[in-house]
Every structure is written in structure tokens, then in C-alpha cells.
């Protein structure tokens, strides 16, 4: 269990600012949501935390340690990410066994077979799936494998980049329940990106509303239900979402 602190995070691509002055802190074991329209920079925040993007300014700390000072091995064991598209995040030519064994081999972990089996069991997949290839799995099953791959290094923080938006509704619920269950059992800290406020409402304790690379407001869940947001954009976003819910 480790807290995540982001201070004054900015990144530019050429002259275009993608993120400016992003700051939030997530307590250990908390689930923090990032919402906003497409292009507001939600996923970019996660990619900066994961160090998939390196040209950012500011400070990101995990468990009190600056991630730029963290050795690679330690960083990998602190933060892992689950990607949006389960069709693109698993290597098409690698079996589930290979995909899950890679991190074990890279980090030279002991008892590989036991770890493989435990990761797969934890995400609710039968063991004979180890020899399947991604094209032999459904979308939900693939996302479970991607979650298992993230879990295998036993990270403290999981970054979830719209983990359910590529799945159909019934499977969405299954994957969300799996994620809540894992957090309850293992005490992960989640930072979750979504454009679906219902998903955020289901999962997160607090959320930040983003617009054009800035955080306009940080709210807790109670404010979400009663639409207690003060910033006009946040109010509008929540209102639109509530209306959509009522319409359904």
C-alpha cells in the first residue's frame, strides 16, 4: 500500500501544452478517478506516472519516493498499468503463459509456476487458459489476463486506463467487480481514468474533473451523487451524465 502524489505535472508537445499544473494526491489504498472528455489529458497523466512518457516537468512520488529516482526494477514493482484496449495490450503471438512468465523472468522471481497459477486464479480464469493465445480469448478474458499480468509483479499502485470501455456492458460489470474485489483483498492504490461517471461512481472514493489539460475540480463521491460541484464545467459534465443515466 503506497500513496501517490502528483505535484505540478506539466508536459508539452512542441508548443502545445498537453498537461499544465496537474496536482493531486491519492491516499494508500484509495481509488482515485480521473474524468473528462476525450483529449483532456487523462490517459497522459497515467502515462507520465508510469514513465511511459518521460519529458514531463513536476514531481511524481509513489510511497514518498520520487519516481525519477526509483531504480527501474523497483519502479516496475511499484506501478503497473492496465490498458484500455485488451485487443492491443496482449502480444498476439504470445500465449497467456508466455505473457505472464515474461515479468517473472525479467525480475528473476522465485517459484514461477506458483506465481503464474496464483495470478490466473486471482483474476478468476481456469488454469488451462495458460496455453491459450489472445485470439482464443474473449474481450473480458483478455482484460483479465492483462490484469493478471499487472498483478504478477505485486505492485502497490495500479493505473487503470479506461479498463472497461472496450468491453460490453455485462462484461464491464464483471471486470469492475474483479477490480474492487482485488483492491479490498490486496489493498492496491488505484488511479483510474474513465469517461463513464457511473464507473467512477461505482469504483472511486474521490475524483478529479479534467478539461484541456487542467484539473478543474477535485470532488468526493457524495458530491458526485448530489452534483455538488462548484466549477461550471464539472457541474455541466456531471449534469449531462446524470441526465443520461435517467434516460437509460
Amino acid at each position: 500500500m503506497k500513496p501517490v502524489d502528483v505535484e505540478d505535472l506539466s508536459i508539452r508537445l512542441g508548443d502545445v501544452p498537453i498537461l499544465s499544473g496537474i496536482g493531486f494526491s491519492v491516499a494508500a489504498g484509495e481509488c482515485f478517478g480521473l474524468v473528462g472528455e476525450s483529449g483532456s489529458g487523462k490517459s497522459t497523466v497515467l502515462r507520465c506516472i508510469a514513465q511511459l512518457m518521460v519529458h514531463w516537468q513536476g514531481r511524481i512520488r509513489i510511497g514518498g519516493t520520487d519516481i525519477r529516482r526509483m531504480p527501474l526494477q523497483e519502479r516496475c514493482r511499484s506501478v503497473q498499468m492496465v490498458f484500455q484496449d485488451p485487443y492491443g495490450s496482449l502480444h498476439p503471438r504470445q500465449s497467456v503463459r508466455t505473457a505472464l512468465s515474461e515479468p517473472i523472468r525479467i525480475h528473476r522471481l522465485d517459484r514461477p509456476q506458483e506465481r503464474l497459477e496464483r495470478a490466473l486464479t486471482e483474476v478468476g480464469l481456469p488454469l488451462h487458459f495458460l496455453d491459450r493465445f489472445p485470439h482464443q480469448l474473449s474481450g473480458g478474458q483478455r482484460q483479465r489476463v492483462a490484469i493478471a499480468r499487472a498483478l504478477i509483479l505485486e505492485p502497490a499502485v495500479l493505473l487503470l486506463d479506461e479498463p472497461t470501455s472496450a468491453l460490453d456492458v455485462s462484461v464491464q460489470a464483471e471486470v469492475l467487480n474483479l477490480l474492487s474485489e482485488l483492491r479490498r483483498r490486496r489493498g492496491f492504490t488505484y488511479v483510474m481514468v474513465s469517461h463513464d461517471l457511473a464507473v467512477i461512481d461505482h469504483m472511486c472514493d474521490r475524483l478529479a474533473v479534467m478539461q484541456a489539460g487542467r484539473i478543474v475540480e477535485i470532488l468526493d463521491r457524495a458530491a458526485l451523487i448530489g452534483n455538488g460541484a462548484r466549477h461550471p464545467y464539472a457541474r455541466q459534465l456531471i449534469e449531462a451524465s446524470l441526465e443520461h443515466e435517467r434516460g437509460r
Binding site: A50, R75, V79, Q80, G88, S89, H91, P92, E102, I106
Partner: peptide, 13 residues
């Protein structure tokens, strides 16, 4: 692709 990003996140050289 995301699977290369995932491999980088796992610390692959």
C-alpha cells in the same frame, strides 16, 4: 502498441 508499452512497464530491456 500497448503490448510494447506493457513490456516496458515490466522492466524489459
Amino acid at each position: 502498441t500497448d503490448y510494447v508499452a506493457a513490456a516496458r512497464l515490466q522492466g524489459a530491456s
